[in-house]
C-alpha cells in the first residue's frame, strides 16, 4: 500500500518524529511504499539541518534525509508553520532579509494544500501528533 505520514511533534521534545521514523522503517520493511512525510506544527523543526544532538544520540534530520535517499520519500514542510518558527530555506531567507537559513533539500517548503494532495494520492495517511 501507498502510505504518507503527518508529523506534528518537534524532535527530542516530542516522541512523535521518533515513532514516525520507526513506523516508516517498519512499513518499507514489509514492502509498502512511503510516498511522503508532511511536517506541520512543531514537526517543522525536524527540517533544520542545524540540529546538533550529542554524538551518541540519533540525529533526526539526518535520519529523515536517509529515508529520502533510500526510499525516495518526499519530505514536505508547511511553509507557514516553518517561517513562523524560524525555519527558512535560502530563497525565503533572502526574501525576508534574514542572514541565514537552516532548511535545504531534500526538505521542501510547501503549502498546506500539499498535505491534502498527498492524502488524495495515498491509500493511508498516518498522523503522529505531539
Amino acid at each position: 500500500m501507498r502510505y504518507a505520514l503527518l508529523v506534528m511533534g518537534a524532535p527530542y521534545s516530542s516522541q512523535a518524529p521518533h515513532s514516525a521514523l520507526r513506523f516508516a522503517h517498519a512499513l518499507t520493511g514489509q514492502g509498502h511504499s512511503l510516498d511522503s512525510v508532511f511536517f506541520y506544527r512543531d514537526g517543522v523543526h525536524n527540517a533544520s539541518f542545524l540540529l546538533t544532538p550529542p554524538q551518541d544520540e540519533a540525529n533526526l534530520h539526518d535520519l529523515w534525509q536517509e529515508l529520502h535517499e533510500t526510499q525516495g520519500t518526499r519530505l514536505d514542510v508547511c511553509i507557514a508553520a516553518a517561517l513562523r518558527r524560524g525555519l527558512l530555506d535560502e530563497a525565503e531567507a533572502r526574501r525576508h532579509g534574514k542572514p541565514g537559513h537552516n532548511v535545504a533539500a531534500p526538505f521542501e517548503l510547501t503549502g498546506l494544500g500539499q498535505l491534502l494532495t498527498v492524502q488524495q494520492r495515498c491509500d493511508r495517511l498516518i498522523t503522529f501528533a505531539a
Partner: peptide, 18 residues
C-alpha cells in the same frame, strides 16, 4: 497556536474546492 493552525487546514481544504 494549535487552534489557529487547525483552522488553517479547514480553510485550505475548503479553498481547494473540497
Amino acid at each position: 497556536i494549535r487552534l489557529r493552525e487547525s483552522l488553517d487546514a479547514l480553510l485550505v481544504g475548503a479553498a481547494f474546492g473540497q
